[in-house]
Simulated scan of single mutants.
Amino acid sequence: MTGPADQERGAAADPPVLVGPGDLDRLKKNREPADFLIHDRIAAALRAAGPQ
């Protein structure tokens, strides 16, 4: 992992992590109890809004 000082010296940054729909179960399993995925927040907001 590189930090701001490394980036100033021209060190390469870590490549982005690509995540797709097939990774959702793994992401949910590996999160902390208080962590929420954006999908959870959107689903909760839609349920709270009720039928449109």
Rank of each mutant, 00 (worst) to 15 (best):
K28Y: 01
E8R: 09
A45C: 08
I42Q: 04
A5S: 04
H39A: 14
R41W: 12
V17D: 14
A11Y: 00
A43F: 10
D40K: 08
R41H: 11
F36G: 05
G3Q: 03
P21N: 08
A13I: 08
H39M: 12
D6V: 07
Q52Y: 03
A44S: 09
D23I: 01
R26M: 04
G20C: 11
P4Q: 03
G10V: 03
L18G: 15
D25V: 01
H39F: 13
K29R: 13
P21K: 03
F36V: 11
Q7R: 11
A48Y: 02
M1H: 06
R26N: 03
L24D: 00
Q7T: 05
L27N: 00
N30F: 09
Q52F: 09
A49S: 09
T2N: 09
V19T: 13
L24C: 00
E8M: 07
G22I: 01
D35L: 10
R9H: 09
M1K: 04
I42C: 02
L24V: 02
G10I: 04
L18M: 15
D14R: 12
A45S: 11
N30V: 08
L37S: 04
R9Q: 11
A13E: 10
D40G: 09
R9E: 10
K29C: 00
K28M: 03
A43N: 10
G3W: 07
A13P: 10
P21L: 08
A34D: 08
D25R: 03
M1A: 08
D40F: 07
A43W: 08
A13S: 13
G22S: 13
V17T: 15
A45L: 12
D23V: 03
P51D: 03
R9F: 05
G20R: 12
D40C: 08
A43I: 11
P15W: 04
A48D: 10
L18W: 15
G10M: 05
A43M: 11
Q52D: 06
D14H: 10
A13C: 06
G3H: 03
P21A: 10
N30T: 12
D6R: 12
D23R: 02
D25L: 04
P16V: 12
L27E: 00
R41G: 13
P33Q: 10
G22H: 07
F36I: 09
D35G: 10
A34L: 06
L24N: 00
R9G: 05
G10D: 06
E32T: 14
D23H: 09
V19K: 10
